[in-house]
Amino acid sequence: MYIDPHVHMVSRTTDDYQRMALAGCVAITEPAFWAGYDRSSAQGFFDYFRTLTDYEPKRAEQYGIAHHTWLCINPKEAEDLGLAREVLQIIPDFLEKPSVLGIGEIGLNKNSRNELMIFEEHVDLAKRHDQMILIHTPHLEDKLKGTKLILDALENADVDPGKVLVDHVEEHTVELVLDRGFWAGMTLYPDTKCTPQRAADIFEIYGQERIWINSAGDWGPSDPLAVPKCQQELRARGHFEDMIRKVSYDNPFNFLSQSGKFRTSIG
């Protein structure tokens, strides 16, 4: 049994839902992200948010998976301040929906001034509406710098670190995030981010408090079964079942339940 707390199902087939259900998935959360191209208007985001809040939960339900979402304009489209602010204005209309857990995945991509400005405006929106936050940290060479900028901005905004998850941590950023009291997410990707083996190493080195794993499955090279594969890796190394359950079920369950809206298909 597991929760995949970060997966972009709009880019996956129904076969993936079936395979995830067969592998023990009982709940997922889907952050709003980049579509692989820039949307031409705020209306494009309005329709995307409708997909995430209306259509996708129904598709997941057919396979016994409880679907939830996070809303935002992602950092890759935040360079256009005008568009970003228009999207920020339509988000509050969706926050009352039963499956919306908060604001995400916000963060930085290339660590630009505009990205940082829009990130801070999202954090402000989350604070005003008492929402939890899911954060995307940049890729590859940009991750270390971006993670530091994000953590500083969060501290300046005085948000409760217990209600913020900083995702896509790796060996050089996990400690920064955990030391400041935030939750950390590890993304299991075939080439970039963590493999199941390296995620298992990080659990062994940094412990299993306030940390989870996800597949971040999307339209790129990614694996919607990455979480059960990491469970398998931990099992093969001889870790106890309660440790495996903690990182793949209890931790996401406890973090996400703070929203008051999170549920799994088993209760």
Partner: peptide
């Protein structure tokens, strides 16, 4: 492999990263 500078850059030059 990381960028160790600390200030945000003026403008994003591209979407991706090179590693």
């Amino acid at each position: 492999f990381s960028d160790h500078s600390t200030d945000p850059i003026a403008e994003a030059p591209m979407k991706g990263a090179l590693g």
